[in-house]
Design a protein around this nucleic acid. Sequence first.
DNA 1: CGAGCATGAGAAAACGTTTTCTGAAACGAT
DNA 2: ATCGTTTCAGAAAACGTTTTCTCATGCTCG
Lengths: 334, 334
Amino acid sequence: MAVGIKDVARIAQVSPATVSRVLSGRSVDPAMHERVLAAVKSTGYRPNLAARRLRSQHTNTIGLIVADIRNPFFTAVSRAIESLAAARGMRVILCNTDEDPAKEAAYLELMHEERVTGVILAPCRQHPHKSALPAPDYPLILIDRSLPGSALDSVLLDNDAMAEQLVRHLHEQGHRRITGLFGSASSTGIERRAGFERAMLDLGLDAEAIAVPHDTATAQRMVVERLTAPDRPDAILASNGVLLLSVLGALRDLGLSVPGDIALAGFDNNDWMEFVGTGLSVIEQPVEEIGRTAMTMLLDRLDHAEAPARKVVLAGRLIARGSSAPRTPTPTPA
Amino acid sequence: MAVGIKDVARIAQVSPATVSRVLSGRSVDPAMHERVLAAVKSTGYRPNLAARRLRSQHTNTIGLIVADIRNPFFTAVSRAIESLAAARGMRVILCNTDEDPAKEAAYLELMHEERVTGVILAPCRQHPHKSALPAPDYPLILIDRSLPGSALDSVLLDNDAMAEQLVRHLHEQGHRRITGLFGSASSTGIERRAGFERAMLDLGLDAEAIAVPHDTATAQRMVVERLTAPDRPDAILASNGVLLLSVLGALRDLGLSVPGDIALAGFDNNDWMEFVGTGLSVIEQPVEEIGRTAMTMLLDRLDHAEAPARKVVLAGRLIARGSSAPRTPTPTPA
DNA sequence: CGAGCATGAGAAAACGTTTTCTGAAACGAT
DNA sequence: ATCGTTTCAGAAAACGTTTTCTCATGCTCG
């Protein structure tokens, strides 16, 4: 039924080895080369990847494990990585953990069973007690979030500096009472909070930073509470996308408009953001660059298994919107 | 270096066959069972999936090829399918064609080489001359879009009826001059247009339907042109997400507000939609149901290869927003 | 002109499992 | 008690490739 390399060999009147050589582009006699190609075409032969991987011992496959496939940032990074991998003739297995440490662990395990060349991982927000994952036997590159305990290769946004840039932007727009909302479970939230607090301090302002749970309903309730309390802020900085939506929900419930009543800023640029109010100012992440860097580090790590762990920190780009006097975006060096 | 089943067998003092049997849950002597498990744990043995797949001849893997991973609809369906597959102990390979027929063809080819159990495909908008793909040797289920030429299993939204529902909704809100924008390259666009035109006709209204290219800039320009021409519509129906954003861009450029100056409705519900203006009315697709149906049809097809092709058409749900007098959503049977 | 060497193609081994085959032991039926 | 049947575990084959090994051919160079 299914056509194998032996069938092709028989039809081309060569040995299976020769077919293999032709298919992997090694030099063979032109006449045979011709015959093999013809036989492949006539039989519709497709190599069995399982067999190929078993024998050749390399899978040309990298695993990409992201924490939330619904987050546009992750889909953008996935696209970038997928296309870089394809250019190198590699496949990528895309996995989604839904921020579930158990699923993450299961997928890391699976990657092992797949004998992948390496893995790029955006780890879960909250990690189990043993935050350090057991040293895997494939190269592992972290993106977007770092892991407190372990020293692993990672490529991250300069969260600290980007939060500062957002604060300064809001300050330039005349806002003084700025409240920051931060997820407390992830390294990004913590770093962004640090940058926020430092920037506010530098500007001589009170830094009101609130740690907010990931749960949307609770977050929104907390925001409503804060906005109805005395000394309502004139600007809010949300450290991630779901938080930003919670704030929008709270503002709508309270009948407040952006940026008329209150300014709003956050992270990750989405196509719809220019359409709520007169726009949200955000930090856009260099997804292409993140993907490329992660890929490069991964391939590099294959050659230098014992090199010390590297951490690459990339700058984002401020997309300034929502001001009455529109400013041009400030480009940052890549 | 790498530990194989033979190492486990040696340590457990049984044959490799017995290890295999234990691991696949077949009954063995309790004492041996115990020893094998202990040996597996002590060695950290992980089976080689390539070898397993080669020998057992089934991959327990399904391919999921979507046209645009950035489209939230597709990520939602992916999540659903992934979780259904996991529940059945199957893996899914997620591929993104970026609406490129060449990439689609390459991925279908790749699925063959992976010897997948089956494939769920959301085909590209525009298909090459030979729109019918060559009959694959795995079950193939289409989702979201159908292929004009070929009779394949497919699960689709009832685009015609949903477009009609949107039109009636707009009509109930008092809108009469409704313009529909439709992508002309996909079956969904064509079906939605048909439903739109029929519904308008039923209501005794002029159906102004405009075919719009997928390119955002061009689309936006066309919308601006239409809105500055005489007889400006008081409602716009956009047949897909990117079109909807183009309309929003045009409205912003023209300084028009939603729904104050003009109503806007579309397909696919996104979390941000309640925050532009006072909300956009949309048809929400039953992603969970779509995933489950596709999966069921796929597994079913494995047993009944020769059964006639089936087409399942699912109803969506109207999310009514943006009216001055808020209405409750109309639930439709699933 | 012959020895050594590069080239290239077929034969056969190898990759790490699962599955079939084989034989021994245990059990039930006559 | 004997024979047949079932159960269970080990030996060995098989899955479809790639790669190593082997050998023949043709070439270069001394």
